[in-house]
Nucleic acid binder design. Sequence first.
RNA 1: GGGCCUGUAGCUCAGUCGGUUAGAGCACCGUGCUGAUAACGCGGGGGUCCGUGGUUCGAGUCCACGCAGGCCCA
Length: 1147
Amino acid sequence: MSTSSSPAFEPVSTQTDFIRQEHEILDFWKRSRAFEKLRQLRKGGPHWSFIDGPITANNPMGVHHAWGRSYKDLWHRFWAMRGYEARYQNGFDCQGLWVEVEVEKAKGFTSKREIEAYGLANFVLDCKARVLTYAARQTEQSIRLGYWMDWNDPDLLRELAERLKEDPQQTITIDGPMGPVTDSVEQIVGRLGLPELGGSYFTFSNENNYTIWTFLKKVWERGWLYKGTDVMPWCPRCATGISQHEIVTDGYRELTHEAVIVRFPLRGRDREALLVWTTTPWTLTSNVAAAVGADLDYVKVKAADGWTYYLAEATAPRVLKGKYEVVERLKGEAMVGWSYDGPFDELPRIHEMGVPEAHRVLPWEEVGEEEGTGIVHIAPGCGAEDFQLGKEHGLPAPAPLDDEGHYIDGFGWLTGRYVHDVAHDIFHNLEEKGILYRVDPYTHRYPVCWRCGTPLVFRLVDEWFISMGPTYDKPREELTEAEKEASLRYQIMDVVDEIKWIPEFGYDREMDWLRNMHDWMISKKRYWGLALPIWVCENPSCGHHEVIGDEHELRERAVEGWETFEGHTPHRPYVDAVKLRCPKCGGLMSRIPDVGNPWLDAGIVTYSTLQYRTNRAYWEQWFPADWISESFPGQFRNWFYSLITMSTVMERRPPTKIVQGYSTLWAEDGRPMHKSWGNAIWFDDAAEKMGVDTMRWLYLNQPLDQNLLFGYTRADETRRRFLIPLWNAYAFFVNYARIDGWLPPEPLRRHPSRREEGFPRLDAPWTAEAAPTELDRWIVARLKETIEAMTAGLESYVPVRVAQPAESFLDDLSNWYIRRSRRRFWSAKGEENAADKEAAYQTLYTVLTTFVKLLAPTIPFITEAIYQNLVRAVVPDAPESVHHCLWPEAAPLTEAERDLLEAMAAVRLAARLGHSVRAGHNLKVRQPLAKALIATDPRHRRELEQLLGLLADELNVKAVEFVEEEGDLVTYRLLPLNRVLGPKFGRRFPLVRKALAGLDAAEAVARLQAGEPLTLTLADGSEAVLSPEEVLVQSQPREGYGVAGEGGIVVALDTQLTPDLRQEGLAREVIRRVQALRKEADYELTDRIVVRLRVEGDLAEAVARFRDLIAAETLAEAVEEVAEPQGDRRLEEQIAGTPVVIAVERR
RNA sequence: GGGCCUGUAGCUCAGUCGGUUAGAGCACCGUGCUGAUAACGCGGGGGUCCGUGGUUCGAGUCCACGCAGGCCCA
C-alpha cells in the first residue's frame, strides 16, 4: 500500500502491531474489491466445488467455528491460486428447535401453550428475524477472520429483520447481482441465496424447503415413509420427541436419581413378594409386568421384616436389609407366569385398561443381575424395550403423560402433576401402601434434551419415519440387487464407498452408524421449521396420506385455503390452511401439524443451492462437491448422514468426493470450553488479542484427529515461532534493500495472476549480474522442496502436511540462510563483491515473494502486507493482491540440488558439533581458532569440501582440515548388525555380541577395512565368522580430545591460542561492545561513528593491531585512544580482566 | 454391556518392518551468539515408555489379561 510515487520499499518496523495491520488489510480488501476481482480473474477456470455445512445462525460464532472456517477459506484460496473457479457460497442453518428455544427464552415463554397464545405467525417471524440478526453477526465475524465468501451485506440482513417484524407484506426493492428485485419482505427473505439475490444460502428459503418436499415425495413413492407408533424419548419442556440422531449427540448427562425397590406382592401367597427395582419411579404407575431372566438363579429368602422375597441370588447381599435366610433356590423360569398385585392398581385408568388382570412374571433375555434385583419392572407405555416386550405378549400399554409431561386424566391424585416432581410423593404413597422396600441414590448416564437439558421421558407417540430398510445377516458383497433395492441402508453404504474420508477412520464411523441406525424419525411437534408436506385424510375411517412434491403440485391439488397461504413462505401457520381432496374417499385432507427434523434442511443443500429443480445443467456442473469439511463429532449421524442419505434417495450419487473432518476444540486446560468454568474464549476477543493470522496458523498446525487445545499461551507460542520470524526475515530484507536502493530486476518482477501470463520458474532465478553462492542455490533448492511439500499437503487436505514444511523452511531461511548471509548485505556499493551482493538480494527477494504466496491461503493478512510492499510498491503492474497471484510452481529438484541439500545437512551437523566442542571448552565463538579437524567417511568428506568456507566462517576458525588417521580423534565401537546377525545366530546371538565387544577395536577395524572377515571365539567354545558387511563400525569421539561426533562426522578443534589469535579475539570483544553501544544509542544501520577508547596492556596492543578491523566492522571513521572517552554512549567494564572504557559518537 | 482409539519427560506430542545409547517443542537451569528477530546455538536436569504375564537372541513397538482416559454404539 505504497503512497510514494517513485517505486521504493516502505520501511518496515520489527515492532509491528499485527492486529492493527489486519484491520488495515481488511479495509484495503474492501476498498479495492479484492474478492470480487479474484472471482472475475478466475471466471472460466476449471471448477472447484465446495458446499458449506451450514452454521446455525442462532448465536455469535465461536473459536471452534473459526477453526473450520479457516480451513474452508484456506482451500478456497489455494484452489483459486491454482486457477480454479469456485462458488464461494456460505450457508446458514435457520430452522428448528434451537432457534425456537432462543426465541422462547427471549420472550420469556416456558411452554408451547404460551407460544400458541402469542400466535404462530408472530412466533415464526421472530424466529426468522433472529436468524437474520445472527447471520449478520456471524458474517461480520467471518469477514474479520479473513474468510472470503459470497455473503450478504450484514446491514441488509439486519434491515430485513426489522422490516419483517414491522410488516412482512410491505414491498421492497433491493439490488441483486442481476439487477433490482422487487417483492414483499417475506418473499425477499424467502428468496435469499437464490441466483437473483446472491449471497449466503439460508435453509429457511423457499427453494430449500420445496426441494425437501421433492425428496420426501420420492421417499414416499418408494414406500419408505411411514407413520409409526412407538415409545420415543420425549422432552417434556419442548413437548416434542427427540430422534435417535439427536439423543446420541450431547444427549446424555451424568445424573443422580433416586432408585426405588418395591414389593410386588404375589397373589395367593401370604406376605410373599417380588422385589422390583426401577430408577424412574414415575413409570411405576403404569406397571404391567415383571420380567426375569429364565436362566438366572433366584432365591426365595425369609427376611427379618416378616416378608418372604424373591430376587436374583447375586443381588441379594446388596439389596436386602438386615438378616435373611435363604429358603429356596430356583431358576427364573420357575417364576414365569406368577401373578402379583401391581403398585397402582387402584388408579381408574389402570383398571379400565385391564392392567391388574395382566400382571404376571415374564421371561426376558435382557434381564441381568449387575444392577437392581434381577426382576425388572415392565411399563410398556413408558419404555422402548418395555413396549416391544409388551407387544410380544399382548399386554396393555398405559401411557400416563401428556405432551408436557403431566399425568393425564385417570391417574387419581397424580393427574395434572409434572413428571419430574412426583418421585417423593410416589415414595410416600408406596410407603403408605406398605410396599416400599428401599430408596437409594443412583448415578447413571441419563438422556437429556440436547437443547434445554431437561431429562427426557419416554412416551407412546405417533411419529413419521423414513425406513432405513432391513439389515441382512450376510456380507454386503453377497447382497442381491433386489435386496439392495429394498433397503435404503445398503444403497447409502454404496454411496459412502465412493467418498474419500479424511482422516480415514471417518469411513468406518459412518458405516458403523449406518449398520446400527434405526429408521429416521423426521417429525417434530413444533412450530418453526420445514412444513412436512404430508397431508392426511380427516375422515377417521379413511386416514389416507399423501406427500406433496412441490409448490406447483400444492397449488393444483389445493381445494381450500390457498388464498390464505398465497404470498407466504411455506411455513406454519399459513401453509396449514391448505386442504386437499382425498383421492380415496373424497374427504378433506389436512397437513399434519408437525415440522421436519432440521437435518433435512442441511442435508438437501447439494441440491437446493445448486438449482437442481430449476437449472439441471448448472447443477451438473457443480455437483458433487469436491470437498466438504466439518467437525467430526455428531456429523456422522447428522449432517454427513443426512447429506448422503438424501443424495442417495435423489440420485443415488455421492454428494461430495471428499469429506474432511476434524476433532473437537477444547480450552488449554484440556477441558471443554465452558462459560461457567471461566475457560471459554469468545471469537471476538481471540481475534483482537491474538490476531487471526495467529489463530489460523494455530489451526493449520493441528492434527485433524486430535482435539485442539486452544488458548492464549499456545497462540503466543505460534506467533513467536512462525509469524514473528517471518516478519523479521522480511524486515531484514527491506531495511537493507532500502539502504542499497535495491529493486528487483525484470525476471523477478513477474507475479502472474493468470496462467497465460506465464510462470516464473525457480530453476535459475538469477540474472547475469548476480553470482549466486552455494548458500543461494541451497535455499532455492529448499524452497523448491517446500513448494512441492506444501502443494502435496494441500492437495491431500491434511493441514499438518502444509504447516510442517513451511515451519521447517522458515527455520532454515531465518536461522541459516539469512544468518550466514548477513555480511553479504553489509558490503558497500560498487565493491568487487557486487555480484555476490546482487545474488544475495535476488535470492532473498525470490524466496520471500514466493514463500508469501505459499502462505497466503493460510495467513492472508501478513502475507498481503508483505506482498504489498515487496511487490506492489515496486512493481506497479503486478496483481493488486497476493491473493490474485497464481500458486508457485517449480520443476523437480535436480540431482545437483539434491546433493547440495545433503551437503548442507552435513555442514550444519559439523557446525553443531563444532559449537558443542567450543561450549565444552568454554571457548566463545568470538575467539578465532586456528583450525577445525574433521574425521569422516569419504561421502561426507566430499559433501563438506564443497562448503568448507561456510563451515570455517560459522565456527570462526582459520582452516578446516580433514584427518586421515582417525585414531587420534576417535575410538571405535564394533556392533553386530542385529537385523542380520540376530536371525543368523538365534540363541547364540548374545554370545556373539559379547565376543565382538571384547575384541581390540582398532585392530578389528583395520581387518574389516581390508575386507577380511572376523573370527570370534564364543564363550561356549564355538566359533563364529562375521563378514565385514555384518558388523557396524561406530566411531565415537575420543575422550579428552575436545571432540564431538554424531552421524559419522567427528569434529575436533585446535584449542591452542597463539598470541595473534588471542589479540584478534580481544579485538572482537571490543567490536562486540561497540555494536552494543550502537544499538543502545539507537543509531541507524548506516550511521557512521567515532569510537573512543581507553585501553591498556594486551588490549591496547590488540586495538592497535586490529584498528582497521574494528573500524570496518563498526562503521567507524576513526578509532581513537583517549584518556577520558566521551560520546553519545559510553561504557566502562573489564575485558579478560583488563579495564576498558569505550564511547561512541555519531558523525 | 459391545466396538474403536489412546496411555512415552512437568506440559503437548513423535517414535518406520521388533534391533544398537527412547526423541522433539514448550517450560526450567547454565552458557554462547546477536549491525533482522519477540529470536537463535550449545549444554544440563528431568523417563517404572500405564501394570502384569507371554512370544523372541532382542519388546516402547507383537500377543493375552488388567487399569485409566477418550470416542462411537447399546
